[in-house]
Design a protein around this nucleic acid. Sequence first.
DNA 1: GGGCCGGCTGAGAGGACGCTGAGAGCCGGC
DNA 2: GCCGGCTCTCAGCGTCCTCTCAGCCGGCCC
Lengths: 209, 209
Amino acid sequence: MARALQAGLAREGYVVDVHHDGGAGLDAALGGDYDLILLDLMLPVLSGYEVVRRLRAAEVWTPVLMLTAKDGEYDEADALDEGADDYLTKPFSLVVLVARIRALLRRGAVPRPAVMSSGVVTLDPGTRRVLRDGEEVEVTTREFALLAYLIRNAGRVVSKSELYEHVWESHDASGDLNVVEVYVGYLRRKLGREVIETVRGAGYRVAGR
Amino acid sequence: MARALQAGLAREGYVVDVHHDGGAGLDAALGGDYDLILLDLMLPVLSGYEVVRRLRAAEVWTPVLMLTAKDGEYDEADALDEGADDYLTKPFSLVVLVARIRALLRRGAVPRPAVMSSGVVTLDPGTRRVLRDGEEVEVTTREFALLAYLIRNAGRVVSKSELYEHVWESHDASGDLNVVEVYVGYLRRKLGREVIETVRGAGYRVAGR
DNA sequence: GGGCCGGCTGAGAGGACGCTGAGAGCCGGC
DNA sequence: GCCGGCTCTCAGCGTCCTCTCAGCCGGCCC
């Protein structure tokens, strides 16, 4: 199901990271800079409730849309009281999901300082725009996805295989990683050499905020 | 029902004003300083849809929670796209309603830039007319619906499948999306090439304000 | 200094994507 | 019944994207 959602949302132009248990999801949500979190209620390691509670306790206010198969009204009320922003009961259609996501994004995040990297590059997932010193830079879909991932993980060194797995959606990370280098090259040409730093033997890094 | 809700919410500590048709409700919402609006979809004088649309057009961003007996998912998607913030299908319990109200209030009102015109193109839903540089341009029903959707979402990239679902009201989104391209082509011929921008791999965008 | 390894890049094949002209089906008006 | 407008499908085409490959460069270790 996660895979189906990722594919569907990607078709709508969203950039999606997937994690398969509550612990991993929580770590990502605490660390990364996301516009929205889709959270299943029934998860290994940590339940959806628990993830929201800890997020809010850590003063992370990213909008959370809870997904679940339960449909008792008290579960719903509970989820919202824990700090989730909306709630959707399985099964649901992609249409409804996307509409809810838009509604949440619209009010949750004030024209979010999108995401920033070394101060000069800004990225706006809604309009799919990339700005360099305020100037719009045209990027392709793949370049956008790669840049989004790097910026979301700004400050951290991201390995080529991690990039390959997430940006190229390859489930066995055994492909030719040269394609990552090629695309980093494209981005550097468009955005300036200094935006993406190479960490020899480890991967790439863009400056954190 | 309005009376029951008012009583129930009062017991929860809320102060509630009630109006019994869309016109009166709209006036109150425009004039008063409310924290939240509960809006029935089926109303005399003005429908719930219409009330939200006019509110948002007037740049009033009070959160709106829509109530309705309908439960077709497309109604829901439409309501959210019109600018409602959440949606609840009758029958619902007071517990769920209160939880949702709390979730909405937590979030507060955030202005959403609503547009009825974008750059050189103006669109009048009442008369179904389209003006380009003040000159009237004749468009067909389908063309109008497409343009309206694009302009309502000005500034954002709208995917072809989203357009197909909303403008063609297709219930399975798996149709041939080429028809979207064809109609974008028609509009460009009538309005000028630059009005609708193609974002390759993502969809279309008309300039935000 | 020389060799090796990791990373970079230019060239180009192949394919995906978007655009368009032609035309078929449908409906309403005359 | 015929005509014209609207909607939609289809196939062809050009363009842009994506990815592979091979050669090169530069840092690092011996």
